[in-house]
Design a protein around this nucleic acid. Structure first.
Lengths: 211, 211
DNA sequence: GTCTATAGAAGGATAGAC
DNA sequence: GTCTATCCTTCTATAGAC
């Protein structure tokens, strides 16, 4: 039986599913979906502050005033990009963990998943989540952090087991933070169409924590 | 004898020294030094775009127009913070490498030095270098990259030796990038006044690459 | 080296028509 | 759901006095 004492601060799977159902980021059918995809792109390439609502509007072929039919203000666009990015990738991560049998496989799966999230199709949105964090107003940060906790817990429990079994040395929290840095940072130098495959990179990253 | 064919793209020690002599960041005696220290602080806390010249001016107790007596424009302030940060820390790193006798000691020294640079007294300026990079106009980026190459070369040659000796497994370039991510990212979660000492963190980071 | 005053441009957001 | 028109604020940068 799970400990429910933290329920208000955590997210259960049902909540995650309902947020997932409302995700628009990857939906090119809706105007809002196209806006979010383009916003992720522009926020990643130019940064949030240097992307104007006029830029975003003209990139999707509408006028700047029309943006505010879909979002109350510019901050809400940022929030939506981040929320959708994290929900989408948390779901992939849960599936990856379920699919793995050994602990080593699970760790590699988590690494692969995180590398995929930051360098693959949702890479721009994930980059925004990681590198534009400071631009999200504090009250909105809290909501996203709650979502993030779900997949950080996946990581921590995997690392705790690995330390218990002697596969990994050190404090799980510190290892997770060091590894999170390595993986997030990969988007600044890794090229998905280069000679290094994402799978090889994942294996090299796994080597960092295994002993 | 060193290969001089890349001279134009590299930096020699004399040049480094002359740039170092012109460094103002850590000089509280000059108005420019105070401006740079405060700029590093504000750029780190709020980000470059969200820091106005008015903010900066009032933080050092002058009027916004007076800023432009010291710097031609706002971008030049950012450039100066970055240049001084990198020159200051490259020098520390060179000294650290010189002082170490074994290769393992050298690697630990490089890690310690990088952690110190991003979490210690020059931490705010180094954070600006790492996380506000995109805000520096491209032509200015080139000059800073040239400076940065000096200490990246220190890293690469140490890692190449370590791989040759079997201390470290994998491609030195990839290992360096993964490690650089870990170390830079530490400024987002590590607290220098917390229970984890910088020395312990350095040792944990060394564990990442050693096999 | 700092001040005052202000030019000039750009950005977020709103209102109301269609 | 999008357009037009525009308000209002904020920001960088300049000019010239002290």
């Amino acid at each position: 039986m799970e400990d429910m004492s933290h329920k208000s601060a955590r997210l259960d799977l049902d909540e995650l599913e309902s947020v997932f159902a409302a995700m628009e980021l990857t939906n090119p059918e809706s105007a809002k979906g196209r806006l979010l995809t383009m916003a992720a792109h522009l926020f990643k390439v130019r940064g949030f502050d240097r992307t104007t609502v006029r830029d975003l509007a003209s990139a999707v072929g509408i006028q700047s005033g029309s943006i505010f039919h879909h979002f109350k203000n510019k901050d809400e666009i940022l929030e939506a990009v981040m929320r959708d990015a994290i929900v989408y990738n948390t779901r992939l991560m849960i599936e990856g963990v379920k699919a793995s049998t050994t602990l080593k496989e699970q760790l590699l799966g988590l690494i692969r998943c995180e590398l995929e999230s930051i360098n693959g199709v949702t890479g721009e949105a994930m980059n925004v989540l990681v590198f534009e964090w400071r631009n999200l107003p504090e009250e909105k940060q809290r909501g996203i952090l709650e979502l993030r906790q779900y997949y950080e817990d996946l990581w921590l429990s995997a690392l705790e087991s690995a330390v218990e079994q002697g596969m990994v040395q050190g404090d799980p929290f510190v290892i997770r933070r060091l590894l999170a840095g390595s993986l997030s940072w990969s988007s600044t130098w890794y090229r998905i169409d280069g000679s290094l495959s994402l799978e090889h990179l994942a294996e090299q990253a796994l080597l960092l924590i295994l002993h």
